[in-house]
C-alpha cells in the first residue's frame, strides 16, 4: 500500500514536471521565432525607408524620433489630449480612449480602445492603424508596451506639461498627418492667445492665487509652477502661492496639502478642480463655510474650473481656458473673442 502510494506521488510529480517543462519549452523555443521575424521586418522597413525617403521624421513629445512612411489614413488616438490635438492639427481619428470627447468632435463612429491608463492593445491591433497618437503623460510608463505590441505601426506621443507644448504637439502632428497648414493655423492661434494675455497683464501686480485639485477622497493637492495649470496661471498674471512647495504624490507638478496650510498665505483667488461627479457639497462651498475670512471668499473669487481642460486633457481648448483664467486672475483686463478656430 505504502509503495503504491509512493508510486502515485512519483507519477504525479513526473506529470507536473513534464507539464511545467512543456510550458517552459513553449516559452523559450517559440518566443525566439517572433523576435527573429520582428527584427527582420524592422530591418526591412528601415531599409525601405532609406531607399525611398518619402516619409516624414519627427521628434515627438517624449523625445523619440519617429518616421511615418506614408500619409496615415487610419489614425488611432489613445487619450483625450491625443484626440483633441489630432483634430486641432487637421487630422481625423478612427478610434479614441473611452472618455475622450470634446465639443466639435464627432466620436460616435470611433472605436473605443479602453481607458487611457489601460489602452487595449488587442482592440488597437485589430483596427490595423497606420498611425497611433499616444499620450506623453498618462502613457509614458507604457511606452515600451506601445513599441512591443504595435510593431511596424508608427506611434507618436503628444502631450503638454507647459502651455507652449500644446502648439508644439499640434505642429508635430500636422507634419505627420500631412495637414501641416491647418496645424500651423491652430498652433499659431494658441501661441497668439498666450502672447495676447501676456501683453495684457504686463505691468499688472501679480494676484496671489492658489489652484487646488480635490481628489475623490477629499484630499487636496496644489498645482506647482511646473504643472500645466501652474504654467497657465503664471501666464495669466498670477503669483502661485504654492510655488515653493515640494512636489509630492504620484503626478509631477503637484504637492499634497491640507486646507489649513493651503490658506495660510491667504490667496486672493482660489481655483478649484473637482474630478468626476463628487457627491455632497463642493469643495468651494466647504471653503466658503470653513474660511469665511479668506480674501478669495470675501471677494467671491473662488472658482471651479474644468477638470478636462486644465488637468485631464491638456490640449487646444487650453487657449480658451487661458482667457477664462485671465478673467478670474486679472478681471480688469479686457480680452477679445476666442481666436482658436473650431476643428
Amino acid at each position: 500500500m505504502r509503495s503504491s502510494a509512493r508510486r502515485t506521488t512519483a507519477i504525479l510529480g513526473t506529470a507536473v514536471a513534464a507539464f511545467a517543462l512543456l510550458l517552459t519549452a513553449c516559452g523559450t523555443d517559440e518566443t525566439a521565432v517572433p523576435t527573429a521575424t520582428a527584427s527582420a521586418q524592422g530591418t526591412a522597413t528601415a531599409a525601405a525607408t532609406q531607399a525611398a525617403p518619402v516619409g516624414v521624421t519627427v521628434t515627438d513629445l517624449m523625445g523619440r524620433k519617429v518616421t511615418v512612411a506614408k500619409t496615415p489614413t487610419k489614425i488611432v488616438t489613445t487619450s483625450p489630449s491625443a484626440l483633441e490635438m489630432l483634430y486641432a492639427a487637421g487630422g481625423t481619428a478612427i478610434a479614441r480612449s473611452s472618455t475622450a470627447a470634446a465639443p466639435g468632435i464627432d466620436t460616435s463612429k470611433m472605436t473605443d480602445i479602453g481607458s487611457a491608463y489601460q489602452p487595449n492593445f488587442e482592440a488597437i491591433l485589430k483596427l490595423q492603424p497606420d498611425l497611433v497618437v499616444a499620450d506623453a503623460s498618462a502613457q509614458a510608463p507604457l511606452a515600451g508596451q506601445f513599441e512591443a505590441q504595435l510593431k511596424g505601426v508608427p506611434v507618436v506621443f503628444v502631450g503638454a506639461v507647459k502651455y507652449a507644448d500644446v502648439a508644439t504637439s499640434i505642429r508635430m502632428l500636422g507634419l505627420v498627418t500631412g495637414t501641416a497648414e491647418k496645424a500651423k493655423t491652430s498652433a499659431d492661434a494658441i501661441d497668439a492667445t498666450a502672447k495676447q494675455v501676456g501683453d495684457a497683464v504686463k505691468g499688472k501686480t501679480a494676484t496671489k492665487t492658489l489652484v487646488v485639485v480635490a481628489g475623490r477622497d477629499g484630499q487636496l493637492s496644489a498645482a506647482l509652477n511646473d504643472s500645466f495649470i501652474g504654467d497657465m496661471v503664471k501666464i495669466a498674471g498670477a503669483q502661485n502661492i504654492a510655488a515653493e512647495l515640494k512636489q509630492s504624490g504620484q503626478v509631477p507638478g503637484y504637492a499634497t496639502i491640507s486646507l489649513e496650510t493651503a490658506f495660510k498665505d491667504n490667496p486672493d483667488v482660489l481655483l478649484v478642480i473637482v474630478p468626476g461627479n463628487t457627491p455632497g457639497p463642493s469643495i468651494s462651498s466647504i471653503v466658503a463655510r470653513t474660511f469665511p475670512n479668506l480674501n478669495a471668499v470675501k471677494n467671491k473669487r473662488v472658482h471651479e474650473i474644468s477638470l478636462d481642460i486644465f488637468l485631464q486633457a491638456p490640449g487646444p481648448r487650453a487657449a480658451d481656458g487661458l482667457k477664462e483664467l485671465t478673467t478670474f486672475i486679472q478681471p480688469d483686463v479686457k480680452l477679445g473673442a476666442a481666436v482658436v478656430p473650431g476643428y
Binding site: 510608463p141 484630499q219 487636496l220 504624490g249 503626478v251 499634497t256
Partner: peptide, 9 residues
C-alpha cells in the same frame, strides 16, 4: 491615503 491625489500605480 497620505500620498493623496494620484496613486494609480
Amino acid at each position: 491615503a497620505t500620498s493623496k491625489l494620484f496613486t494609480q500605480a
